[in-house]
Design a binder for these strands. Sequence first.
DNA 1: CTGTTAGCGCCTTCAA
DNA 2: TTGAAGGCGCTAACAG
Lengths: 325, 325
Amino acid sequence: MPNIKKIAEMAGVSISTVSRVLNNHPYVNEQKRKEILSIIEKLNYSQNSNAVHLVRGKTNVIGVVLPFVNHQYYSAIIEGISRMAAKHHYNIMLCQTGYSPEKEIEVLDMLKMKKLDGVIICSTINGWQELEKYVKFGPIVTCEDTVSSYMSSVYIDHYKTFALGMEYLIEHGHRRIGYCVGRKNSINSLNRKQAYLDALSSIQVMPKEEWGFVDCFTVEDGTRVVQSLLQMKERPTALLVSCNHIAAGIVKAAPKSGLSIPGDLTIIGCDDQQIAEILEITTIAHSSVDVGAGAFTLLHDHITKKNKETKKIELFPKLTKRLTT
Amino acid sequence: MPNIKKIAEMAGVSISTVSRVLNNHPYVNEQKRKEILSIIEKLNYSQNSNAVHLVRGKTNVIGVVLPFVNHQYYSAIIEGISRMAAKHHYNIMLCQTGYSPEKEIEVLDMLKMKKLDGVIICSTINGWQELEKYVKFGPIVTCEDTVSSYMSSVYIDHYKTFALGMEYLIEHGHRRIGYCVGRKNSINSLNRKQAYLDALSSIQVMPKEEWGFVDCFTVEDGTRVVQSLLQMKERPTALLVSCNHIAAGIVKAAPKSGLSIPGDLTIIGCDDQQIAEILEITTIAHSSVDVGAGAFTLLHDHITKKNKETKKIELFPKLTKRLTT
DNA sequence: CTGTTAGCGCCTTCAA
DNA sequence: TTGAAGGCGCTAACAG
C-alpha cells in the first residue's frame, strides 16, 4: 500500500504539498497539483483514515446505542439517523446492547477513546446519571426524556401518551382498564404507569394489580397476555399497550380464544409500526423516523459547536382511531 | 485528556511499561503494574483508539452494506451479524445505500482507507465484478449468490425458491400464475424470473407479460399490485411474491376489492418476516438471522486468516403452508 | 523486567 | 508557493 510519502517521492515534491492537494488547500501550483493527482490515481492511493483521525482528533463516526436492532421501533429511528448522517458525511456505528449495562458502557468508552465523535442513545439501561459522566468526552443525545441538563434529547413524554389513551378509553365508557409495558422500572414505563394510575384515580376506580402486564416486547408477549387474560375471573374491557407489536399479538390471539375485538376487548397500541396499519389497530403514535433525524441533528449541532446549550425537543404523538376501539 | 506519556511520567516509568500493562503483556513488576493501574484509574485514562488502530493496522470494525435498514429482511440480517460481532469484539459500521452505487463504493473505500477490517454486502447494486476490485484491500462477504471466486458468501438460490413455489402452485392446479419481484434486473430477480418461466414452460403455458410485477418492495407496492390486477381482463389465480411485505399488502387489499384469498387469488410469499406469521401467509423462507450470523463468521475467518480460500454457503428455504394457499 | 528508539501515516505551523 | 520539522498517541523490536 502506497502512502503519502511514496506519492511525494514519485511526484518529486514534499509530503506537505501532497497533503495540500489531498485536502484541497490553496497555494499549490496547478501543474504540480495535476501531476500529483494523476500519480494518486495511478497508484490507486487513498489516505489512511486512522492516521487522519489521529491527527485531527475526530473520526466522523457516531455511535447509535439501542437494545434491539431487529425491532421496528428502533430500525425506524436508525433510518432517520442514517438519512441525516449521510447528508452530513457521518458514519454510524451500530451498537446493540440487548439492555446489557456493560455493553452500553463499552460504547461510551468508545467515545472516550476517540473512536466516536458523539453518541445517540435510543434507550438506556444505565440511566442518565451514568451517561452524564461521559459527556466530557463528547456529546451525547438521547431519544428518551432525561432530566440531565448536559444532554440534549428528542423525546416523547409517555405520561402524556398514556394519559391520552386513558382519556379516550374512559370517554368511551371503559372502567375496567389494563395496560402492557416493557421493562418494569424504566423511566418510560414508570411514567406510563403513573398516567394510568392518575387517570383511574380521577374516576375513582381502584387499579387492579393483575391488569398491569410488564416485560412485553414482542408479538409473542401479546399472545401471552391473552393467555393470562383467559385465566382471570374478572377481565378488563380495554388494554392500553405500549407497543403495536404486543398489540398485534393480542389482536391475533384474542379471537382464537373467543375474545372478540373490540367487542370484548378494546385495544390501543402505541408507536408507528406498520403492523398497526395492516391490522387496523388504533394507535397513539409519532414518527419514529423523525426521532432519529432530530437526534442526529441535535448531535451534529453539538459536534460542530453550532450550539453549546443542550436542547430538549418534545414530540407529540396523536391517536389514530382504527378498528380495535 | 491524559495520554500514555502522562501516565508514564506520573508513575515514574517509561511509556513502554505503561503500554505493557495496557496490553496485558507479561514481564512487568507486579508492584509497578498496580501503581500504573491505579494512576490510570485516577486519571480516568483510556487509550486513543485511533493511535492504536494506526499502529496496529486494524480497527476491529466491519462495514455492513444494505439498501434499507428499516426493512425487516435486512434488520434480521443485522441482528445476526450483531450477535456474532459482539461475541468476537467487533463493531459494526452500518451503511444504508438506498441502492445508490456511489454510496456503496464509499463503503468499499473505507475498507481501502483502513477504516474497516472487512465488509459484508447484504445486497449489491454495483455487482460483484465491481466489488471484486476491492478484495485486495480486505475481505468482502456477500449475502447474495456471486460467481466471484474472491468473495465468500452466504446465499439463497432464488431460482430454487421460486421453483419450489411454482411446483407447489402447479401441483395445486394453478395455470394462470403471476409473480412479484423487486429490482427488475438484479441477479436474484432474474433468477426468480427464470424459474418462473421454466416452470411455466414445463407445463406448456405461455407466460403473460402483465402478470410479472417488478419494483415491489413495500406493503404499498402490494396494494398497487391489487389495483393492477383489478384492471385486467384476465387475472392470474395465483401470485408468487418475493417478499412477505408485498404479500401482506396484497392480502390486506384484495378482500376489500372483492378478491377473496385464497379463493380468487392464491398467494405465496417469501422470507421470514413475522408479518407472514401474523397474517397467516404461506411463505417460502430461510432464517435471515442465520444469513447474517453466517456472513459474519465467514468474514471473521477471513480477517483472522483462519481460512484463505473463499467459501460459499447455501441456505435452503422451505415452504410453510398457511392460509393464503 | 525495563527503557530507548523507531516508526504507523498524516497534518500543520513556521520559515523560506 | 514550497519544504522541513514537530507532533498526534501508541506499539514493538532491541538492547540492556
